[in-house]
Amino acid sequence: MLKIIDAHIHLDHYNNQEIKDIIERDSSLEALISVSFDLDSSKKNRELAKIYSKVKPAFGYHPEQTPPTDNQMEELFSWIKSNQSDMVAVGEVGLPYYLRKEQKLTTLQQSQYIDLLEAFIKLSKELEKPIILHAVYEDAPIVCDLLERYSVSKAHFHWFKGDSKTIQRMAENGYYISFTPDVLYEEEIQQLVQPYPLQQIMVETDGPWPFEGPFTGKMTHPSMMKESIKTIAEIKKIPIDEVYHHVLYNTKSFFFI
């Protein structure tokens, strides 16, 4: 049986029955990288990992929200360091692209997010853990600058969108990207598949985020990634089994699972 790993899911945002269904419904699902939104989310993902061996948690602070206070940041970083053996990566962290589009952030506010991300990048370096990034469009070069500054190469840009120059830079630096089910119907995403090295590609759901096209009205489930893999194989014009093999190997080796 061809196995799959969800490289990026917010499992703690599903209810208990949905979580049970996700874990047990598809026997081809080998693991899930469950990313965290904040400290409470990190704690919940840690507990889910104790219940379900397939859950591999990442601890972090999602950037599309108000930055943590100094005390909150200190508490989160202290907790992550104390529980580093329970996590496979630092994440989800990054820059607030969509929040910035909705609200006019001051220069000071934007610098706060960059400082927070820099602290997380330094933490991933210190703990020798991969980092899972939310960084799209014009935010991506800023993140690349920080990663290069601290010589962090184990970087995963989830649901990435960006220009060709940044894509080439990321590929040359050995960074990984992952595709969501919208690769089936979003031309912008499809155009990323061909140039990016297969050896640096993973698949994800970003669940419970909902999708359109053939997935309209359906609960986001890791089984959707099988259609993503099929589409990647078609775009790259290579056998689907080869894509399954590389994507599985990439994800396991990246997260050391």
Rank of each mutant, 00 (worst) to 15 (best):
L127S: 10
K56N: 10
S124Q: 09
D86G: 08
Q65E: 07
D115R: 11
L29P: 00
F59G: 01
L99K: 10
P239L: 10
S27N: 11
S228W: 03
E75V: 14
Y150D: 12
D206M: 10
K125L: 09
K237G: 07
S223E: 13
P130A: 10
I51M: 13
G94K: 03
S85D: 14
V35R: 00
F160R: 08
Y61K: 04
P195L: 10
Q84D: 11
M219F: 05
E118W: 00
A58I: 03
G94R: 03
K161L: 15
L146A: 04
S28P: 00
L99R: 14
M224T: 00
S151M: 08
K218P: 00
E64W: 10
T216Q: 15
K54A: 06
K81S: 14
L105M: 12
G60W: 03
E186S: 15
D40R: 11
Y61C: 01
V90T: 06
E75I: 14
P214R: 12
G213H: 08
P210C: 03
Y150M: 09
L105I: 03
I80Y: 01
I142R: 09
K236W: 09
M170Q: 08
R149D: 08
K237Y: 08
P141E: 06
N15V: 02
K101H: 10
I33Q: 02
E187A: 13
N83T: 12
Q103E: 14
S111T: 15
K56Y: 07
G162D: 09
A233R: 09
D21N: 12
I238L: 07
Y185S: 11
N71F: 13
Y97V: 01
L105E: 03
E75T: 14
I232H: 04
P197L: 08
L48A: 06
N71R: 15
I121W: 02
Q191M: 12
L11A: 01
I257F: 15
Y14P: 02
V35A: 00
E18T: 11
L108P: 00
I229Q: 08
D21M: 00
P57K: 04
Y98N: 09
I142S: 02
K165S: 13
E18S: 14
H62K: 02
F77G: 02
E75M: 11
S28R: 08
H8G: 05
I5N: 03
Q72M: 07
E74T: 12
Q112M: 05
V152D: 02
S253H: 14
G162W: 03
P96I: 00
G94N: 07
D206K: 09
K104A: 11
S53W: 08
G162A: 11
S34E: 06
P210L: 10
L108K: 14
T180Q: 10
A140E: 06
K218W: 02
N45P: 01
N71K: 15
S28C: 00
